[in-house]
């Protein structure tokens, strides 16, 4: 075999090896790229499957009943509707559903205007080092662990709400139903809403800032050329253009607020079996209850508590995934249409 021929064979085999490496790599990478989808499907399947016994046991009463009672854990296990559960057990999640919706609604009412205006400042009013510093601070706020928010809520916010903000609101607006009453310790609905507002502000702000920066410069210059002030350009040109994306950003923040666990667990006051009476009542959200009921999940021999918590998790998952789907679709649509217009300068 000549030297040249051997060289050619070597090259051939090397080329074949590299082709196999190519195919192998591509296969492994394709599997990895499918992981997020697989994981999401698995979460949905496992949590819903785990919830089935509880769905059969409670039916619709799960979302209409306010009593969350584990039953007699040391007594006989009763069979009800083909499902084994401790005697007297009742898993009504209405209190937690209301707590989740109310606290996230308060968070949105506060966070949306603040975030949109902050985003406008970031997008149009500052530039250079000040812009990157402010952007960095907002992104840093998004990176702070939720237990640290909870710690700050307990140390600073709850005492302030209990001693000043709560009594202040009750004094001024006490005639409005739901706003009167005693502010108590400050651990409750209002404080949870405030902490959640601070936690979702960076999310909404970053999304709205990116949207505002996508508004074609020509449109803004056109507004200025027509004699609008920069504020009027924001109000009448920029915000209408990004409106759909804005709704998406709000939904994004809402999904995050509903799913937030630790901060609400720490400042919410852990209500059980009682709907909030006023703005300062203790509450529990679905996420906080799941975190708080760890012990009950461990001690229930019939495992019914585990299934009930799984149903709670399934409900929370469906709520947040639906809001997220809507949010992402709306945010993307603005991105696509702004790009498709082809006038980005």
């Amino acid at each position: 075999m000549s030297q040249r021929k051997r060289g050619e064979m070597h090259v051939m085999s090397q080329r074949r090896a590299s082709r196999w490496a190519d195919i192998g790599f591509r296969g492994v990478a394709a599997v990895c790229s499918a992981m997020p989808l697989v994981v999401l499907a698995a979460i949905l399947a496992v949590v819903v499957a785990g919830a089935m016994p509880s769905i059969r046991y409670m039916g619709w009463r799960f979302i209409t009943d306010i009593t969350w009672n584990l039953g007699n854990l040391y007594g006989a296990i009763s069979v009800h509707g083909g499902v084994r559960a401790p005697a007297g057990a009742s898993y009504g999640a209405l209190v937690f559903l209301v707590g989740t919706l109310a606290s996230s609604a308060i968070a949105l009412v506060i966070a949306v205007p603040v975030s949109v205006l902050t985003a406008a400042v970031l997008a149009y009013q500052v530039r250079g080092p000040l812009q990157s510093l402010l952007s960095f601070l907002v992104e840093l706020l998004a990176g702070i662990p939720s237990v640290v928010f909870g710690l700050w809520g307990i140390l600073v916010l709850a005492p302030w709400v209990g001693s000043q903000l709560g009594p202040g609101i009750a004094h001024l607006f006490g005639w409005v139903p739901f706003l009167g009453g005693s502010a108590g310790t400050g651990l409750g609905l209002l404080t949870s809403g405030l902490v959640l507002a601070l936690m979702i502000t960076p999310i909404i702000t970053a999304a709205v800032r990116d949207l505002l920066m996508q508004v074609p410069r020509l449109y803004r210059e056109g507004g200025i050329g027509l004699g609008l002030t920069s504020w009027e350009v924001l109000r009448h040109v920029c915000l209408p253009i990004v409106r759909e994306g804005l709704i998406g950003a709000v939904a994004l923040g809402w999904g995050r607020a509903m799913g937030e666990t630790m901060a609400v667990l720490m400042v919410g006051g852990s209500a059980l079996n009682q709907l909030p009476q006023n703005l300062y009542s203790p509450i529990s959200t679905m996420a906080a209850v799941i975190a708080n009921q760890l012990d009950s999940a461990l001690t229930d021999a019939s495992h019914m508590a585990v299934h009930a918590l799984a149903e709670l998790a399934a409900l929370l998952l469906v709520l947040t995934v639906v809001t997220n789907l809507v949010a992402r679709l709306l945010v993307h649509r603005v991105g696509w249409t702004a790009g498709a217009r082809g006038v980005r300068v």
Binding site: P36, L40, I43, V47, L252, T261, L309, N324, A327
Partner: peptide, 20 residues
């Protein structure tokens, strides 16, 4: 498709991930 569902996955509450 994957990008979209990856974003949705990032919105799943972390307590639900833990419970899963």
């Amino acid at each position: 498709t994957v990008r979209f569902w990856t974003e949705v996955l990032s919105g799943v509450p972390s307590i639900v991930v833990g419970y899963f």
